[in-house]
Nucleic acid binder design. Structure first.
Lengths: 340, 340
DNA sequence: TTGTAAGCGTTATCAT
DNA sequence: ATGATAACGCTTACAA
């Protein structure tokens, strides 16, 4: 049914180690027998057992990836970047979703450990230090991708985007267009990118000698609903903001939809800027101005780092920080005191 | 470094088989030693080697999933459905992207075979019959999800949405609103859902005693660009259509963007309907009327089928067909001879 | 160039 | 209740 090298050996009248050598391009084998065995193996539909091989080789050529959810345009592109570079190095990826529950994230990592993956990449982790402690100690590189800064100890590994600077870019764009009352809808509470983006927003404000007004900060969720819920609050302000910087594109898109329903014109009545540059940012109306994260790159760099560490096994620890870039589309414009 | 049961056995002063029994809740073990061994295992940071276990047990508790690309809102939700139900049955998933290249799809399946996954789920496959031949014969269930109908032989396994009926629903919705000249932008050529949706469109037309006009059919790609490119062609027609049924939401969203740039009002000047109901369909402007595919369900059912087949090992072959549902939003309205 | 044998970390079948 | 021992499929010294 599933032929092993022993079955092929029997059919070829050789020992199973000869078959192993023939199949793994060993130099110590006669070209003729090699060819004969390979033909036979193909005929019999042989497929090497990766598990058995890993047992003796000591590595699995597999990496584990844990995301909060796959059904999110941001994660999806990051995973695409990981998978793509894994593929080109003959690695495969085991994917697990944590649903943003720490215990489930831990269970996933434990499963990956059992599966003996050669490295683990965890995105948006809130408990990355734990994995580092368990896996890192066991010699398995753990790479934290866009994860909480508290987890980013010096002996830890990480790849992330510069959230603070990206947020500064977004805010400066608004500032440069004359906006002075700029609101901000945050991401999920307790998530570090959210804190970093808020910090970038504050930094830009302060660099422009503008005061920080807590009344202009609205709590979001990172999902469209967060933006939708923020809009009425924002409109209820006596001194209304003329622009809003949203934690991410999904939030901005939700806010855009709410603005449309409220009869508010974007960008004329309100400029809106997001973060991420998810594929659909270009297709909403008005097309969303945003700070593009190098999503595919993020995944690629994380996988590259994993590969390097697997090869060198010298877990030195390193941090890669990529920069986001401002993408100006139609949802932002200059502030006009007389709207229209 | 990575303790095995032998290391624990040594530390506990017992044989490795006793450790194995202690750790796997065997009834043939003294409660006290069991507790002692488990404590020791925890202290030493033991993690069972899933590969070694699989070798003797004969299964890996892992399924392989191959999609064309992960960075697609449709696939992403399907995979989420698969992963989620896999997780709740303690299964893990190896994910591979084929980039819609048959050879890469084949390579991915071959890799999965080597990894000895207990089942394989392939979405949008164009060469599913091949996998069935190689893997199915080897006793590994292969489930085709939304794959080409040619691949769906009776001894094959599949889960899919009723594309033809969904397309009929979409077209009937337009018909019911008085539209008579209804254009259609197809999906990627040679992809069977595209053919099925075209067939559903034709069926609805013919049921309404309307002639099929090939001039109203425009080739798309399944991506926004397909819709964007189709719009000018559609406008160039002397007898312009009053509505258009798009292969999928991404196509419709592209077309919506092009329409906006062309100063065309949707739905007043042109009704637009999509297919899939991706998360962003509700957030474009106007919100997209579409036929919702039960994406998460599709993944869930495929995984359930995999689990059943793994348990029963009686590869009987089965086909599950789920229905899509019409979701009316704002991009479609009744036909008015005097537009506006 | 090939065969023999040991070993990877488990589980499972024997004894004891 | 526990300990030897074989087996899973493979790679890799070590012999021949």
């Amino acid at each position: 049914m599933k032929p092993s090298i022993k079955d092929i050996a029997r059919a070829a009248g050789v020992s199973h180690s000869t078959v192993s050598r023939a199949l793994s391009d060993s130099p110590l084998i006669n070209a003729a027998t090699r060819a004969r065995i390979r033909r036979l193996a193909a005929e019999m539909g042989y497929s090497p057992d990766a598990g058995a091989r890993s047992l003796v080789r000591g590595h699995t050529c597999t990496v584990g990836v844990v995301v909060t959810t796959i059904a999110d345009p941001f994660s999806a592109e990051v995973v695409e970047g990981i998978e793509s570079t894994a593929y080109s190095h003959s690695y495969s990826v085991i994917l697990a979703a944590s649903q943003d529950e720490p215990e489930r994230e831990i269970a996933a990592v434990e499963m990956l450990r059992s599966k003996r993956v050669d490295a683990v990449i965890v995105t948006s982790s809130r408990v990355g230090a734990l994995h580092q402690e368990r896996l890192g100690a066991a010699g398995v590189p753990v790479i934290l991708l866009n994860s909480h800064s508290q987890q980013l100890a010096p002996h830890t590994l990480s790849v992330r985007v510069d959230d603070m600077n990206g947020a500064r870019l977004a805010t400066e764009h608004l500032l440069a267009h004359g906006h002075r009352r700029i609101a901000h809808v945050t991401g999920p509470a307790g998530h570090s990118p959210s804190a970093d983006r808020l910090a970038g927003y504050r930094a830009a404000l302060s660099a422009a000698d503008l005061p920080f007004d807590p009344a202009l900060i609205f709590p979001g969720t990172g999902r469209p609903a967060g933006g939708e819920q923020a809009l009425p609050l924002l409109l209820a302000l006596t001194a209304q903001p003329t622009a809003v910087f949203c934690y991410n594109d999904m939030t901005a898109i939700g806010l855009l939809a709410a603005a449309r329903r409220a009869g508010l014109r974007v960008p004329d009545d309100l400029s809106v800027i997001g973060f991420d540059d998810i594929p659909f940012a270009a297709y909403v109306s008005p097309a969303l101005t945003t700070v593009a994260q190098p999503k595919f790159d993020l995944g690629q760099r994380a996988m590259d780092m994993a590969l390097t560490l697997i090869a060198g096994s010298s877990g030195e620890g390193g941090h890669i920080m990529l920069q986001g870039t401002l993408v100006v589309r139609e949802s932002t414009c200059s502030y006009k005191s007389d709207s229209g």
